[in-house]
């Protein structure tokens, strides 16, 4: 038996070793077009973007482009407007993504679980409608809602409350609210799916043990959907960090720079001031902020 296995093992081992080595390039062959395309159209622009961030390229054409090392990044950290944009981006993300979309989405999903079918269908379709309209349309809808002659002030007038130009007095709050309005549906969908996955028996068992509504939510629901919370927080934050059209349509980052978040700042530098090199460097920094927030929410 021993000799038999030795003999049997020998012929299978010898051709097996060079086999995969010879086969590897061949196996890769069908993937080659896809890989080339990815490198060309996905990797290429990214590499070019990183390159531009280290140059003083301008869109006005006249001057030559030089490699300037870390100048753009140094400039960003010394730029008051950049720091202002970072702070506003954090406020915007905290308010609209973490507090707004996430909490409201969870609350809506929890309430909808207990609601009757018609209420659920109606609420669901209204909330999702806000999510389905294109960003620029949502931007103009909310611009019309918040502006001086807008719906919100008409409502406040009707209630006898003082009205104001929200886009001028509280621009960052107005755009944060707009983002909540638009993005809550996504969280709601994620949480509705997560909540329906919780087995009834566990909730019932807790009920039998004497847990009240809040206790059940805290000890059963939250721990059981914590993975969904993590995923949702991450997706929400990344989406909110890159919101541009909504803010651009409502305030263009103004008045002054009081609602100028990083994407708006980046656009302003790159395309209004034609400093594409600097704008791209800011884009890379934004990428870094997104990366950090991912670590924060996902661990």
């Amino acid at each position: 038996m021993a000799t038999a296995t030795k003999v049997a093992a020998a012929p299978t081992e010898t051709p097996a070793r060079p086999g995969p080595r010879r086969g590897r390039p061949l196996r890769w062959l069908p993937l080659a077009p896809a890989t080339v395309m990815l490198l060309l159209f996905l990797g290429g622009p990214i590499a070019y973007c990183v390159y531009i961030a280290f140059t003083n390229m301008q869109l006005t054409g006249a001057s030559s482009t030089d490699f300037v090392g870390l100048d753009n990044f140094q400039r960003a950290f010394g730029d008051d407007d950049f720091r202002n944009a970072v702070v506003l981006t954090l406020v915007f993300t905290l308010l609209s993504s973490l507090v707004g979309q996430n909490t409201l989405g969870l609350a809506l999903a929890a309430l909808m679980q207990r609601a009757s079918r018609p209420v659920r269908t109606l609420t669901g379709s209204i909330v999702i409608a806000a999510w389905v309209v294109p960003e620029i349309v949502a931007g103009f809808l909310l611009y019309a809602f918040f502006r001086r002659e807008g719906t919100l002030n008409a409502l406040l007038d009707w209630l006898g409350l003082p009205s104001q130009n929200w886009l001028y007095t509280l621009p960052i709050l107005a755009v944060s609210f707009a983002n909540v309005w638009r993005g809550t549906a996504f969280s709601m969908l994620v949480y509705s799916a997560a909540l329906s996955e919780i087995p009834k028996e566990i909730t019932e068992a807790a009920e039998v043990d004497g847990a009240g509504g809040l206790g059940r939510f805290w000890h059963i629901t939250l721990p059981m959907i914590r993975r969904s919370i993590g995923t949702n927080l991450m997706l929400n934050t990344l989406q909110t960090l890159s919101v541009f059209g909504l803010i651009w349509a409502m305030t263009r980052g103004g008045p002054g720079n009081r609602s100028q978040t990083l994407p708006v700042f980046m656009y302003d530098q790159a395309f209004n001031k034609s400093l594409i090199g600097y704008g791209t460097a800011v884009a890379l920094l934004l990428l870094l902020v997104g990366r950090c927030s991912r670590w924060c929410t996902c661990g």
Partner: peptide
């Protein structure tokens, strides 16, 4: 018509806003 004009134009806009809003 110089390459830096867009930036000058923005700086002018900022000066206008600061002066008109009373900042």
């Amino acid at each position: 018509t110089t390459p830096v004009y867009p930036q000058v134009s923005t700086a002018i806009g900022e000066a206008m806003e600061a002066a008109t809003t009373g900042d």
